[in-house]
Simulated scan of single mutants.
Amino acid sequence: MTAPQPRSTPSFDAAPLTDPVDPKAVSAFAAELKSRGASETSLSSVIAIVIMVLIAAITVPVLVMTVVSMFTSGETGIATIGLLLFGGAAFVGGVIGVVGWRRARETRYRLNRFALANGMSYEGRVASPSLPGMIFSLGSSRLSTDLVRGTRPRFVEFGNYQYTVRSGKNSTTYRWGYVAVKLDVPLPNIVLDAKGNNGFGSNLPASFQKEQRLSLEGDFDQYFTLYCPEGYERDALYLFSPDIMARFIDNAAELDVEIVDDWVFLYTQRKVSTLDPATWAWLFGAVGALITKFDQWARWRDDRLLLESPAASAASPVAPQEASDRLPFAPPAGLLLPPPGVAQQGRRLKRSVQWIPILFVIGIAAFWIWSRSL
């Protein structure tokens, strides 16, 4: 599915993504990443490439001699044909490995230049990133790669992420692209499940109890399913005012969204940090459209904290009515009295069991048992 484009293309320098590069500069940058332990190429990958190259170096001369012998003797056999196939596969594998390795080094070099050209920074890899989003606590071998970070007007991180889920002898690696935006204050855990990127059911790696589903006004429900903690419906309506809902519909309808602690995450099951200028234009446009509205979220306060810490009310001299008079919109009563934070019941959504994968496994097991009984 083609990603929707923002209404206006943001101004940024995409030339480093496509301009010719100096191989020597690429090698120098790869050495710099390696020296600080930020190279993405793992030891196992390097060993695999070296082995494939050695096999190709050994088998190519043997193949040449074998082909010459075949034509001079006029005889062929199964062993000869097998050797030819094995040697050909080894040679092709070696070439693919070397090309992939060189392309990965060039990609990292280009992304670093792209980040610098646009006032940002680049990091090759971060193992087990300490981010609170739903995808960052799953599986093992957690790894963020090709991180492009900006700090103005607020911290934003674009990255690719993967984790591995093991089940017995089998394992599956899941890959995501994400954008992480830092907020000014913690907010309730809210999830927007984008309907435009779903297949057979939600594509999110977690499911949530249906009692937490909240319907918003207008046509917002046609694009997103919103989940918020029970009792925080009024707060969600305050955070997702009509103008903010319009921004999400226009710019992020193909992205799943999670608000957790003082972060907003945009998720997609495609690479975010890429050499495709159109992808960066889309993402920069989406973030730029949303980030201008996040400032008003900094005014939100959780009244429930007054019950957890009654002394907090004495810390602020601002009365609820006075606060309402100053703001261009009317916040919930007592909005500015509690300190920044979220009460315990609003910090995380309640999860539910994902029945579709369970039913699928049960169906496979039932079919296997039935086939064995025939």
Rank of each mutant, 00 (worst) to 15 (best):
W368D: 06
A319T: 14
E32V: 04
G341R: 08
A330Q: 14
W280F: 00
A315N: 12
V67E: 09
R347Y: 11
V342I: 14
L359C: 12
T9R: 15
E254V: 04
I51E: 01
P317K: 01
V99I: 15
L290P: 02
I55M: 15
E258T: 02
V68P: 02
S73G: 13
L266G: 11
S215F: 11
P4D: 07
R149L: 05
A89M: 12
P10V: 11
D295V: 04
L336K: 07
P277R: 03
G199F: 04
Y232P: 09
V353Q: 13
I364T: 00
D146I: 10
A289H: 04
P6E: 03
V50L: 14
L374Q: 12
P340W: 04
T225H: 01
T66E: 12
L307K: 12
K293V: 01
A252L: 05
D13S: 09
S371G: 00
I58C: 05
S45K: 10
K293S: 14
G124F: 02
A28S: 12
T41K: 03
G37D: 04
D13Y: 09
T172R: 15
V26A: 02
D276I: 06
S121Y: 08
I190G: 08
A206N: 05
R347F: 02
F284M: 14
F200V: 13
F248Y: 14
F86H: 04
L226P: 07
N112G: 09
D13M: 06
V60M: 14
Y178Q: 08
K169M: 02
P320E: 07
I244Y: 04
A298R: 15
A311D: 15
D22G: 12
I78F: 14
V53H: 06
E106F: 11
V64M: 09
T2K: 08
S39V: 02
T268E: 11
D261M: 00
I55Q: 07
G363M: 09
Q321L: 13
G77T: 06
D221L: 01
D303Y: 08
G150N: 07
T172S: 14
F208H: 00
S144W: 05
K24F: 01
P61A: 09
L33P: 07
M1S: 11
L63C: 06
G288D: 07
L255M: 11
N203W: 03
S273F: 02
F86D: 02
W282F: 08
N189M: 03
A30T: 10
S371L: 12
S128W: 12
P129K: 09
G124E: 00
L63Y: 00
S273C: 00
A365C: 03
F155L: 07
L336T: 10
G77R: 09
P61Q: 06
R125A: 06
V99L: 13
T76G: 15
A246Y: 01
L255Y: 13
A14W: 04
I55N: 09
R351Q: 15
I364G: 01
T9V: 03
I96P: 06
A319S: 13
